[in-house]
Amino acid sequence: MATILYARVSTSDQTLDHQRRQAEAAGFHIDTVIEDHGVSGLNVRLTDRPNGRRLYDLLRSGDTLVVRWVDRLGRNYQDVCDAIRHFLDRGVTIRTVINGMTFDGSTSDPIQKAVRDALIAFMAATAQAQAEASKEAQKAGIAYARTAEDGRYRGRKPSYSRAEFRLVQDMLTQQAGTSAIARATGLTRQTVLRIRDAPQEAERVLASWGM
């Protein structure tokens, strides 16, 4: 029985090492790492990714698939639901680093199955909604940046990088406190609060500065 970490990084600000360190810090002992770089989770299905397809070939009954969160499998609602259910039917256990969720196909109780499937559907829908919101924020930021080239003021340059922005979001998802996040990222507590309270605006500012 193997424990396989699937890591997907879609931008230069994300790293495989970060996802592996998170998994190991959460107590996972990883046997194999499968990674995909520069692949959109919204538009490219797991089976169509260079290494995503390998999961279907490698995973066997009794294996554990570890992902940082379900959005690493994809950000398309139907694709994520289909992939998770396929692996569960094969006897694979799926575990997330964030929030420590565990999904398996061991239960035969119809009520428990319904609750499990509803939770999977909710998480998949959340992943797609976040991706679409982020995409719209980036479009708005790019459009704003183009008008700025004509002499309009873009506002103050953000004090955080895109990598720091993503780390703050990750830690917020794990319900870390703002003071703890500030210490971990080196950002001020006020900056963390701005990102927490207005994440789309924070991403738009990054995009407007081409960050």
Results as ranks from 00 to 15, higher is better:
2 A>Y: 10
2 A>R: 13
3 T>M: 11
5 L>V: 00
6 Y>I: 02
8 R>G: 05
12 S>K: 14
12 S>H: 11
15 T>E: 12
18 H>R: 13
18 H>C: 14
21 R>H: 12
23 A>T: 07
24 E>I: 08
24 E>N: 00
25 A>V: 06
29 H>K: 14
30 I>K: 03
35 E>G: 04
38 G>I: 09
42 L>K: 05
42 L>D: 00
42 L>Q: 00
45 R>A: 13
45 R>S: 06
47 T>H: 14
47 T>W: 14
49 R>G: 01
49 R>V: 06
51 N>V: 09
55 L>K: 07
57 D>P: 03
57 D>G: 05
60 R>G: 05
61 S>I: 03
62 G>N: 11
62 G>L: 12
71 D>L: 00
72 R>G: 01
81 C>S: 13
82 D>H: 11
83 A>D: 12
86 H>T: 14
91 G>Y: 07
93 T>C: 04
93 T>G: 04
93 T>W: 02
96 T>G: 03
97 V>M: 01
100 G>V: 01
101 M>A: 02
104 D>V: 04
105 G>Q: 12
106 S>M: 11
108 S>R: 15
112 Q>C: 08
112 Q>L: 14
112 Q>M: 13
112 Q>A: 04
113 K>W: 13
114 A>I: 07
115 V>F: 11
117 D>V: 07
120 I>K: 06
121 A>R: 10
131 A>D: 00
131 A>Q: 03
133 A>R: 05
134 S>G: 10
139 K>T: 10
140 A>C: 10
143 A>G: 09
147 T>R: 15
148 A>S: 09
148 A>H: 10
150 D>R: 14
151 G>N: 01
155 G>Q: 10
158 P>Y: 09
159 S>P: 10
160 Y>R: 03
163 A>K: 13
169 Q>H: 11
170 D>A: 06
174 Q>G: 09
175 Q>G: 01
177 G>S: 15
179 S>V: 11
180 A>H: 06
181 I>C: 04
188 T>E: 10
191 T>R: 01
192 V>I: 04
197 D>H: 02
198 A>S: 14
198 A>I: 02
199 P>E: 12
200 Q>H: 07
201 E>K: 02
206 L>A: 02
209 W>S: 00
